[in-house]
Design a protein around this nucleic acid. Sequence first.
DNA 1: CGGTCGTTTGATTACGATCAAACGAAGTGG
DNA 2: CCACTTCGTTTGATCGTAATCAAACGACCG
Lengths: 250, 250
Amino acid sequence: MPDLHPTFEKLVRRLERRSPLGEEDRRALLSLPYNAKRLAAGAHIIRDGDPADNCCLLLSGFAYRYKITGEGGRQIISFHVAAEFVDLQNSLLGIADHSVQLLTEAEVALIPANAVQELALTRPAIARTLWIDTLIDASIFREWVVNVGRRDSRARVAHLLCEFSLRLEAAGLASNHHYELPMTQEQLADAVGLTSVHVNRVLKQLGEEGLIRRDRRSITIEDWGRMRQAGDFNERYLHHDAMNGGGEPA
Amino acid sequence: MPDLHPTFEKLVRRLERRSPLGEEDRRALLSLPYNAKRLAAGAHIIRDGDPADNCCLLLSGFAYRYKITGEGGRQIISFHVAAEFVDLQNSLLGIADHSVQLLTEAEVALIPANAVQELALTRPAIARTLWIDTLIDASIFREWVVNVGRRDSRARVAHLLCEFSLRLEAAGLASNHHYELPMTQEQLADAVGLTSVHVNRVLKQLGEEGLIRRDRRSITIEDWGRMRQAGDFNERYLHHDAMNGGGEPA
DNA sequence: CGGTCGTTTGATTACGATCAAACGAAGTGG
DNA sequence: CCACTTCGTTTGATCGTAATCAAACGACCG
């Protein structure tokens, strides 16, 4: 086991924000065995159908989960930033029901799934916080179902850009609704169920409407209020304040 | 606390299929305090934004979860049959991020969320099995994201009909790919992100192609192989065999 | 400097939405 | 029991959003 990577501390802080941990719990988390790797952009953490015996913590960079349809279409299911478990779900269910791929070059910590399960079985507070982690993941999935199922193209991409803004900010990677999009328009399209051509047109339109400004991959949401409205965005589903429950009314 | 409803036994059996429980665990689950109610079709278990302090176990009947968009569109996010927790997710996160409504008249057991959390904190095996339950829910959400995001109308409804077939069969409510649809075409439409008019046409077409036969709400999948193909359906995501991991290759 | 990948724009097509209306079944009250 | 209502299903006609096809452009890289 290598020296502890600093992102582990961030992980603990993130988990703690949601459900309190004792000193013992923190120590246990920080002494999980793991295997750190630096991988290139595009590398696969796991592929749909493979047995999953490691659970992957993202130490730096970005990743996404996706599935491929029989017709060959790709649907991106979630995005992940550093200090997030990107493969907890696969690894606990034994066999992967979706693929996980790196968006950028990244460092990952592969933690034996057994070790995580063992920890959860012996440390109730850790079990609880990890459970909440997957509950929040599920909440985001639900919102994505709504996004691709019932919103038009403009709202879909606006919603996604809003989500990025808050999540990246929470991760310390954005401020003032300004951030660097870690992905191509094609990947954006696969996340919202559109074509990249159409996403491009929507981005252009959002720019013309003065909702966003962009320069290459850099995005600035110029009018958060109107953007929220355009994307029918309500951050409650992110549960960034899971401890005190709920956000403000619209 | 009223006499134990028989569905609790079913719940225990269902949870056990996924992760072993001890005798003590079983007893603890079966002695959870609850408040049983019989509610009419259309009754709400909880509404988006409300505080959630009970977690709802469906004792009989059907329920679904949904969200409403700013434009007024409804997206159904999941369906539930008897012996499933229909509101575990809301109740553990404190404030509901979606609504839950009954599809049919039903009996529900309202269990104080505290009691469930307490149980999870003191009984690791129960924490584990409930966690797996929410992991499987999340897996289904992921598949639904793919369904509404990247499949055409025919595949979407075929996929949903396939999912129903297996889930109802697992619940003892279907056999030989024959079952009673517990919902209207409008609700079906809101589950797959289409209009009810279009769902109706797709159902008609699936009938003409000889994939299904229907009479009123009764559905028979006549050609499971072709139906699976039409719906791009792979049951692995349901994790009905969570213990031994994975399904067969296509 | 050529090559690759991603972005941008234009032209056309098609899938599913929308609008509209009739029909059928189940339930209600006179 | 029958008129009447309501809700869901079915069918038809038209419309519009996003897909598809195609091509040029720009940035980054070896």
